[in-house]
């Protein structure tokens, strides 16, 4: 039961929730910027494959976010009939392209800052004292 609760709290597997919190949005936007359009299951599989199985997006985190990004105009959704069911393909809107650039730039900047703190090089503030 406790494992179930922990899984519920974690949007990803393998990495801790704290470590990966906030990266789901840039990951999805980056994927969509490289492909014309993708559907939910395809996004989950792509992330799993690209991360060699280390990051598995939980459906419970993916769909609320996709829906929210669609609602605020970052993504556009197109419904396509697959047999007798509806499949929604998501793609970046014009606004979404700008949001993606900003989001990736922010993430890159954040990663650099964390690197500077965790692995300071000679000449950085940590060695000045």
């Amino acid at each position: 039961m406790y494992i179930r609760i922990i899984e519920r709290l974690m949007p990803f597997q393998m990495y801790s929730k704290e470590l990966l919190k906030g990266t789901l949005k840039p990951i999805i936007l980056k994927l969509l910027s490289e492909k014309e359009s993708m559907y939910g299951y395809e996004i989950v599989q792509a992330v799993k494959e690209l991360s060699a199985g280390k990051i598995v997006i939980k459906e419970g985190s993916l769909y609320p976010l996709l829906h929210s990004l669609t609602k605020d105009g970052t993504l556009e959704a197109e419904a396509v009939m697959i047999g007798k069911r509806i499949r929604k393909y998501y793609r970046l809107s014009q606004k979404g392209k700008t949001v993606t650039t900003e989001s990736l730039s922010e993430l890159q900047n954040f990663i650099k800052t964390i690197e500077q703190i965790i692995y300071p090089k000679e000449g950085d503030y940590a060695f000045k004292n």
Binding site: Y39, Y41, Y63
Partner: peptide
């Protein structure tokens, strides 16, 4: 009950 999300989840389950 949210129709758009329902379609997504149904499709996801179907894919699995």
């Amino acid at each position: 009950t949210i129709p758009e999300v329902r379609d997504d989840v149904v499709d996801h389950l179907c894919c699995i």
